[in-house]
Amino acid sequence: MAAETGTPTTLTLKSNDDELFSVAESAAILSVTIRNMVEDGCAGGVIPLDNVDGKTLASVITYMNGISAIPADEEKKKSYRDKFLSDKDFETLADMVLAANYLNMSCLMDAVSAKIAQVMEKKSVGWVRRKFGIENDYTPEEEAAVKEEHKWTFEGVETDDDN
């Protein structure tokens, strides 16, 4: 844990492409994964994060610093998260949600998941497939059967040519 010297402890994080990042321990322990390492005394040297690349880690650290600078005010934290995620494309969001899952950061995980879910809201199956490039591997008969099973979910969906 932080030494009682009054100066904030800094941790060094290493991405899987060998980039090094310095971050205040108080911000980094938003990640339960990192917090456990710190508590186990494994944080003396460099903390390797094997599942996160440098670009994503830089972004996650920006988030860690931003959110930990906000005092306990859920409204303000929420608006920071909304703003932080507003300009991210889906590829970036996918990287972030994987990193958040690996780092065990539930607030970031929830925020990114909600952001991705928002894209799918009330959209037709065809639209979601095209948006995310999902390949339809059902045969027409299989697809019709699945649709029939859940036909109540197809009302009120935004219309689409191949809905």
């Binding site: 809201e121 199956v125 390949e135 339809n136 059902y138 699945v146 009302e155």
Partner: peptide
């Protein structure tokens, strides 16, 4: 619930 269930049609 309906948006979630509808994802079953996306792919296998």
């Amino acid at each position: 619930q309906e948006d979630a269930v509808r994802t079953s049609v996306l792919s296998k």
